[in-house]
Amino acid sequence: MPLQEFPAMMKLRRPPQAVLIDLAGVLHTGDLALPGAVDALKRLRRSGLPLRFLTNTTRSPSATVIAKLRRMGFDLHPGEVQTAVLATRRLVAMRGLKPHYLVHPDIAGEIGPSNPNPDCVVLGDAGAYFSYAALNTVFRLLMQGLPLLAMARNRYFMEEDGLSLDMGAYVAGLEYSTGTQAEIVGKPARPFFETALADLGVAAEDAVLIGDDLADDIGGAQEAGIPGILVRTGKFRPEDERHATIRPDRVVDDFAAAVAALSV
């Protein structure tokens, strides 16, 4: 039986004027490039289309992310990678905020130090550093009325040994315990996608996003007016193809198939 492909729900240009690409689960899993992904990116490069790589990864600074992908054979450039960490730093600066940060130590140099007299809390994926003491400090600040900014609220991600819990569980727990609603900065927040479009100088309907996360990649992109192609790699689950409300513009096996579908 042939694999299902959803009919387009938005008009997919052939080819589009720009391509937005998720990283983990689309190009790679952990330290391993997914089969065919390196060659597919080379093919996409030859088309001349402008690219943006969008990632909610908040454990590693952007330079580390780029170096890791280059070691796998991917041709990425610093100006093409938009991370939730950099988006958060930009938002904090724009609003003149003085955050208390609960983030992974590896991004401390990129995001900056906590303020001793904070006016907000900023949460990233602290991984093993989500200790009770660290979370309780955040809890107490939120109970004092400070707003909560979360770099992302992803549920899980794919590592080489299987699915792993992501920071969304901690965001939800803090919201539940404090009655606070977090403002999400990375995907699926509409401004995150709109920033990429503005940098590229293209309209939403003239771009396309390739991702493995039905809600944060595809749903977020479509909310911003961007068609979305879902790949059956990374955090993709079979039930994603039967979701009641989010319908990808196309579902394909992997990144190589997504590039082929663009007819570039």
Rank of each mutant, 00 (worst) to 15 (best):
A196M: 07
A215N: 05
G211H: 07
L214H: 02
E194N: 11
A207L: 09
F192R: 07
L200N: 13
V202H: 07
L200Y: 14
F193S: 05
E194H: 13
F193T: 01
A196W: 09
E194W: 03
F193G: 07
A204D: 09
A198R: 12
A221I: 00
E223L: 09
G211P: 05
A204Q: 02
A198D: 10
V202C: 11
A215R: 12
A224N: 06
A198P: 00
D206Q: 15
A221R: 02
E223H: 10
D216K: 01
I218Q: 02
G220M: 04
A198N: 03
G219P: 08
D206H: 15
F192N: 10
Q222E: 12
A204M: 08
D199Y: 06
E223S: 11
F192C: 10
A224P: 11
D206R: 14
L214F: 00
E205Q: 15
A196P: 09
L200A: 12
F192E: 09
A221V: 04
E223V: 02
E223K: 06
A215I: 13
D213V: 00
V202N: 02
T195S: 12
L214D: 03
L209N: 06
D199H: 14
V208R: 14
A198E: 12
F193E: 09
A207Q: 10
D217H: 00
V202L: 03
D206I: 08
V202Q: 07
L214Y: 03
G225H: 12
A204S: 14
V208M: 14
A203N: 05
